[in-house]
Design a protein around this nucleic acid. Sequence first.
DNA 1: GATGAATGAGTTTTCATTCAT
DNA 2: AATGAATGAAAACTCATTCAT
Lengths: 215, 215, 215, 215
Amino acid sequence: MSATRPEPRTRRRTASEGTGTARRAEILAIAAQLFATRGFPQTTVRDIGDEAGILSGSLYHHFDSKEAMLAEILRDFMESLRTRFAEVVTQDRPPRARLDELVRGSFATIHQQPHAVALYQKESGALAGVPEFRFVSQISLEIEKMWVDVIVAGQQVGDFRTGLDPQLTYRFIRDAVWTSVQWYRPRGRLRHDVVADQYLLLLHGGLLADGTDSA
Amino acid sequence: MSATRPEPRTRRRTASEGTGTARRAEILAIAAQLFATRGFPQTTVRDIGDEAGILSGSLYHHFDSKEAMLAEILRDFMESLRTRFAEVVTQDRPPRARLDELVRGSFATIHQQPHAVALYQKESGALAGVPEFRFVSQISLEIEKMWVDVIVAGQQVGDFRTGLDPQLTYRFIRDAVWTSVQWYRPRGRLRHDVVADQYLLLLHGGLLADGTDSA
Amino acid sequence: MSATRPEPRTRRRTASEGTGTARRAEILAIAAQLFATRGFPQTTVRDIGDEAGILSGSLYHHFDSKEAMLAEILRDFMESLRTRFAEVVTQDRPPRARLDELVRGSFATIHQQPHAVALYQKESGALAGVPEFRFVSQISLEIEKMWVDVIVAGQQVGDFRTGLDPQLTYRFIRDAVWTSVQWYRPRGRLRHDVVADQYLLLLHGGLLADGTDSA
Amino acid sequence: MSATRPEPRTRRRTASEGTGTARRAEILAIAAQLFATRGFPQTTVRDIGDEAGILSGSLYHHFDSKEAMLAEILRDFMESLRTRFAEVVTQDRPPRARLDELVRGSFATIHQQPHAVALYQKESGALAGVPEFRFVSQISLEIEKMWVDVIVAGQQVGDFRTGLDPQLTYRFIRDAVWTSVQWYRPRGRLRHDVVADQYLLLLHGGLLADGTDSA
DNA sequence: GATGAATGAGTTTTCATTCAT
DNA sequence: AATGAATGAAAACTCATTCAT
């Protein structure tokens, strides 16, 4: 914060907009992986530079700051997720089918973008109050609304049990499904659609053998 | 630290046992809260000192390092959790009752020690390979075994559905239950036993109205 | 600007206020000299640390930032200057005597605090718009008012020539007097009161031999 | 640079003399303004590039370095100033008329090249010992000699008061006159020749109403 | 038990400059 | 003439930790 330069001066990306060249994407992918693996604060720009094969200072040719990299990764991810889910919930199918599709889509996302998902889980909490990251909680809320609406619709048409709080149900499903990114291995023996099947089985009929709850 | 230090487990506390221990616990509680809220790397020793009303350097009169504080918090927590669960699984009750008790005990723990739970969730991943923190993954495994054993026993006696992979089922329950620490507010309107009830309802009978899965 | 630490957290100086210990003053004097000699941006915190015999990072035990050091130096200087001038202009003497005293006081200040004066001259321009340094232009204006008031008063009582714009006259005197800090050497042969005498001679009677202006 | 480079003085400009020169001048004018406004060290080559509509790296097609730009600006300015003053002092007029002309010429220069003047004032001090910028202090001395000679001549012919140290008198006038660049606005209401008139009035006859100094 | 001054190794970021295209 | 990617050196600042008092 130099006292002698009052104007902030907006920077970079004057020409050839559009998020930039291939190098940007390459670096972002590296950063996403490191952020997800080590955590954002524990990842140094030197780590990123080393992995990308350039000096850490050279990263600033492509991005304004380490934080800006995080923002770009998260924004790309969350907007793609919103789009994906929006397509599902607007389908003309029964709520139950749409919810199944949301779950399957989540597992597919975890399979395709494990780093972004893990990153979101790790950092979204700390980012809650930061103005530059308002979009995170905002899109999260939009997505929550999509899911809850489907659950409510499912209860109304008789697909889903009543007596369950829709928001609590949403959290239950969301947490069970998305936390699997912590242990799911994209190249492991357990394929993501198999996990989805098992989770849906459990989610649909519950754990008890007779499927009824006498508690 | 704990793995390498020859002394039993407690340290310092040369004089004035009573007060010293009280101060330690006080500081640890502060540290746990900060670690849980901001994350361990983002919490500085000065943050802790400020909150405790002493200078950061003075913390080293009580603890060997910032890491040692984390270790002590986590060890206390995990050992108490192991004890709590061990008592449940050794009860002479049907598997289903024992599983319910594990779930209810989890929510009670989240209610009583939210900081330690959040801390464990946030940092256990990064601590996986650190020798001083081997106890974390070790106790985690012990606990996992207790739960999985109950699930398997439940399937054998016909309490629980077969066709579900026990370990996957464990993960499903664990993630749904424990992640609730992220949004559960101990002083909020939603009491922990109410959440437990809802979650058990869903877990037992599933989401579908008829309780059967035709998928 | 870490995304993960939203609160700014006010820092330092909780106890034993009063600008601090002797070490602070010592370091500030060193910083003032370096800032004045090399210019603020050209002076590195390492320069200051080297001169003070500590590591640059240790400076942050005493001050929040390099900029905060500049602010403290300038504030101390400008407030002392305001006090000094305020004492002069409130004296019950004819305007001419008061103006002479302002001039002599200026040279005495240049003699006593050459670094602060040079620093003010060099950096006040660049600091004009910076919020943290608003006091600089504010006190400058207060001082300008004192001088201009004396000049106007002098014209009213007939001490000073009319036909001179008071503000322009102020700037003339101010610039001639204060810029001398650039070449004045406190330990040189030319004593500050001798310079003051010469400057007052010229200022009072002008350059021309007959003292009248026929232009 | 200029002191060490073997080439005459102009450089590059291999082809397309006309356009190349025009672009150079354009960029130099931009640089002069930025250097004067923000200070040389606070101005980045990117600032200059941005203002000129090219990338910072492209500046190096026109100039060897940022420092070389400064040198060229200052050299152009100082040589033109030397020439201007040399013409005045060699006129066959009484010393008093020549001094007035020097003063008026100074204000005209401030009006015409405010950036170069401000730049000289801001940076000449820091440049004092740098070999590449020896010409700055050298030409300054030549100019000082011209002015002091005129003052001495004026005292000898009885135009100017004796009893004033010529060099001190020079500094007084120089500082009062040239520092006005800090507050003078070329497009403001106060025209430069009006300021010159007022300053000469004060300089000639002094501030006191009777024009005599009884101090 | 605590203070306050300091260390030392690290962090993010800046920026003049180079150079292949 | 200009771009865009990169370098390399330095900048301000952070922070866990030590230690004499």
